[in-house]
């Protein structure tokens, strides 16, 4: 059964078109209406070429990644942030505001530099 979700906001460019209809079948997006070329392609193939579903870790950047769980990966990240003298947190532009809020609070607590992709 194809289910149609109406008035979806397109999360792919700053226009945030809010009139997209998305066709969903078995938890997969099978089609869109009203989205532009870019939006449509992203809705259909948002997972991209390689999508990770588990956290990965390595001590040395030359080694291969080893799979780990979320708790370990995040705790290690927290430790790196706390121990660092001048940590940099960068990006933020493709996550939602609630996540940004929590992330900025992390930055305030550890004393980081916070910057985003605001070339415009």
């Amino acid at each position: 059964m194809v289910e149609i979700v109406k008035n979806v906001v397109c999360p792919f460019c700053g226009c945030l078109c809010d009139d997209i209809e998305v066709m969903v079948e078995n938890n997969h997006i099978v089609g869109t209406k009203n989205a532009c070329r870019i939006g449509h392609a992203k809705f259909m193939h948002f997972e991209g070429a390689v999508r990770y579903t588990e956290p990965l870790m390595r001590e040395n950047k030359k080694d291969d990644f080893k799979k780990t769980d979320y708790e370990t990966a995040i705790e290690e990240t927290a430790r790196l942030l706390v121990e660092s003298k001048l940590p940099l947190m960068y990006g933020f532009s493709s996550i939602d505001c609630n996540a940004q809020h929590a992330a900025v609070n992390v930055g305030i607590d550890v004393g980081a530099i916070l910057d985003n992709t605001a070339s415009v």
């Binding site: 397109c10 700053g14 532009s93 493709s94 505001c97 940004q100």
Partner: peptide, 11 residues
């Protein structure tokens, strides 16, 4: 003209 969808949100 913002590129990424939530540049403004972070600001």
């Amino acid at each position: 003209m913002r590129g990424h969808y939530n540049v403004n949100g972070f600001n």
